[in-house]
Design a binder for these strands. Structure first.
Lengths: 185, 185
DNA sequence: GTCTATAGTTTGATAGAC
DNA sequence: GTCTATCAAACTATAGAC
């Protein structure tokens, strides 16, 4: 399908030159078309961004669903954090699209953002099913902590492990704050 | 001085329309000049960004220097975090400029970035002077935590207090992780 | 120092032939 | 669906008169 090829080309350009450098001509060149032809498949440039965003969150949602959580609440929180951290540090363009507001004038459609909401709420449900009572504030602190590690990793050590190495410690710190029981006494 | 008026106009435009929307015409219009005239005062548009960045970090450095830290290490960490958090949530355009890489092709000059480095290292020194031994990893975790709270605040509750309210708890959590003594037993 | 004029690009988007 | 041709607009930056 043409839509699929166009989106693949868009990802390739975004990865090579940055998300902000994405242009219709650049996409069209790579896919062997002329820029106006893209309008037969997408309503606008923002529609392409939106499709990319929706696909990204859908892929993340899919990945979270394939993850089996450990029974231990402490280990479960760590697994979830690692899943998000790895996904967010795999691809800068994707991270910018999903987690940063880097494109002026672009607001995601409700449909494209839905899997993002689903991914978070499903994870919260699964953690609660393990017997952990988490409040909204607990969740907010968690997202800030994991998101902060991701951002620092990208900003100050892209491709490295300087903040990735801190993830387990951060999760321990967080679990302690929730008064979760320790495995290894 | 003309330079100062231009920078003030640039800030005004950035606050109203976003940092990415900054144009030479927009700045010139506001200051009552024509766009090319700006080149008598700044070498390029990036030079304007750079001057804004330098001024921002210099202002932050100045503010940190006026802050008196409590003797208690735990309270000191909290004070530092609050100082940064407040500064970073006061002005979105400034935050984007200082802490995000939102302008394509713009890299800060060494001179403009120097006060940023100074602010961090001075704070670390002052904390160490209180008797707290902090490693590089400790600092990395700290910056990720505070920066993560700031980003979440801007992204999901701009102008609100949803993550601001979590700052004290986050600092307690962090201080616990450092095994700092509690004040109130 | 400030202006007019303009170069030189690049962009998203549309019209209409095929 | 894809193309050529083009629009209309925006931008940074430079040249040169005053």
């Amino acid at each position: 399908m043409a839509r699929r090829k166009i989106l693949e080309a868009a990802w390739a350009v975004a990865r090579e030159q940055g998300l902000a450098a994405l242009t219709l001509r650049g996409i069209a060149d790579r896919v062997g078309m002329k820029a106006p032809s893209l309008y037969s498949h997408f309503e606008s440039k923002h529609a392409i961004y939106d499709a990319m965003l929706g696909a990204s969150w859908t892929e993340f949602l899919k990945r979270t669903r394939t993850v089996t959580l450990p029974d231990s609440p402490r280990a479960a929180l760590s697994t979830i954090a690692r899943t998000f951290f790895d996904f967010a540090t795999e691809d800068l363009a994707r991270h910018q699209l999903m987690n940063l507001r880097t494109i002026p004038g672009f607001t995601p459609s409700e449909a494209s953002y839905a899997p993002a909401v689903a991914a978070l709420s499903e994870m919260v449900e699964r953690v609660r099913a393990l017997g952990v009572e988490v409040s909204d504030a607990d969740i907010d602190l968690y997202t800030a902590l994991v998101g902060g590690l991701v951002d620092q990793q990208w900003a100050n050590d892209p491709g490295g492990t300087r903040w990735a190495r801190l993830l387990d410690r951060a999760m321990d710190m967080y679990a302690d704050n929730l008064d979760l029981p320790r495995e290894d006494p």
